[in-house]
Amino acid sequence: MGLFNKLFGRGEKDDPSTELSETEQLKKGEIIIDAGDDQFFKVIRSLTDQQKESIEKSTILLRTGQLYMHYWTKNLENKNREDQEWQNKVMFFWKAEEQFLKKSLPPIFENFEHKYFLFVGDTSKITLKSSKALPWFGMPGLGEKHVCEMNGEQITIPELNKMGLVEYVEQVSLTNDNLDVLTKREDYFFWVDERITSFRNGNFYLKDKPVLIDIAYSIGGIHLFKKVILE
């Protein structure tokens, strides 16, 4: 998950980290993709010809939508709902790309497990509320903090998961030894990071330039996810 953490919430930049800045220098051996208008993206996943062909022929679904995360430790099922630390683990959540310094959480939270999830199904009965995190613990704050309500009461993400309204996911690294996952539609899917790559009319785009699916994957514009059960 190291690469995933760099792209989502562990670094210092809000923008996708595969896009080169004007002052950033390429290191020896790094490859870039030209998106036009002097915009370049680093290849962060080197693919074999076999992997490229398998991605092109994959039959798993393609999904979009905001990716979120919440913090997690063991034995959180029956905690006091008024406990602030418990709330900050399972009640409140963040966009996956939100930087830690903007969350104004106790520093120990940075070492807690991250649970990534997507909303699924009929979410019409869920009210999503957001607020800005206040500066605290020597951090600037101002990150966007989210909470869900149903029937006027706050509800945790694990509870929404049990209702079938939230699906937990983990990133999977593609190798020559696990290419069969690209045909397992029930358990795996490609998720589009729309900060980097868009998908319109059956085509992937890097900025306004059409690119092949393996290119989108190689620069981190799409990710291979596995559906997982919360333990």
Rank of each mutant, 00 (worst) to 15 (best):
I60R: 13
G202M: 09
D208N: 15
I229S: 11
G141A: 10
R185L: 02
P140D: 09
M1L: 14
L76S: 00
A35P: 12
S54R: 03
D214M: 02
F225E: 01
I33F: 01
S46H: 13
V90H: 08
T197C: 15
Q84I: 13
G221R: 09
L134D: 09
N78M: 00
I108R: 10
D177C: 03
E144T: 14
K209A: 01
L7G: 09
P135I: 03
N151A: 03
N5W: 03
G164S: 07
F93T: 05
W136S: 02
Y205G: 06
E56N: 10
E153Y: 01
G141F: 09
L3Y: 07
I108P: 11
H146D: 00
K95H: 12
L61Q: 14
F93W: 04
H223Y: 14
F190P: 08
I222E: 10
E30I: 13
Q84R: 06
T156Q: 04
F4M: 14
G152S: 00
D38P: 05
S218M: 04
V169Y: 01
N111Y: 08
K115A: 13
K207Q: 10
D214Y: 11
R45D: 04
K162L: 00
D180L: 06
N203S: 12
V43K: 03
T123F: 05
E167D: 10
E110A: 09
I196F: 08
V211W: 03
D49T: 01
S46W: 10
D180N: 05
K184L: 12
L26C: 12
G221Q: 08
T18V: 14
Y168N: 13
N80M: 00
Y116F: 02
S218C: 06
K209F: 09
M1D: 14
K79F: 05
G2L: 13
Q25M: 15
K28D: 15
Q84P: 11
P210R: 13
N80A: 00
Y168T: 14
P107D: 08
F112P: 10
I215F: 12
Q171V: 07
E186F: 06
R63F: 03
T59R: 03
M1P: 15
S54P: 00
I33G: 00
V166S: 06
T64Y: 12
D38M: 08
K145I: 07
G2A: 13
R200Q: 15
H146N: 06
I126Q: 04
R63E: 08
I60A: 09
Q171R: 06
E97P: 04
Q87F: 00
H114A: 07
N5I: 02
I222R: 02
D193Q: 02
K42E: 08
T156K: 03
K162R: 06
Y205P: 07
Q171I: 07
V147L: 11
K145D: 06
K79A: 09
V166D: 02
E113N: 11
R10S: 15
V166E: 01
D122I: 10
F112D: 14
G121N: 01
Q66W: 07
T59F: 03
T123L: 02
F199H: 10
Q154N: 01
D193R: 03
Q39F: 05
K89H: 10
D37K: 05
I219D: 11
D38T: 04
M150R: 00
S131N: 15
L118N: 04
L7M: 13
L62N: 11
E30G: 14
F119D: 07
K226S: 14
Q66E: 12
I215S: 11
Q171C: 08
D180Q: 07
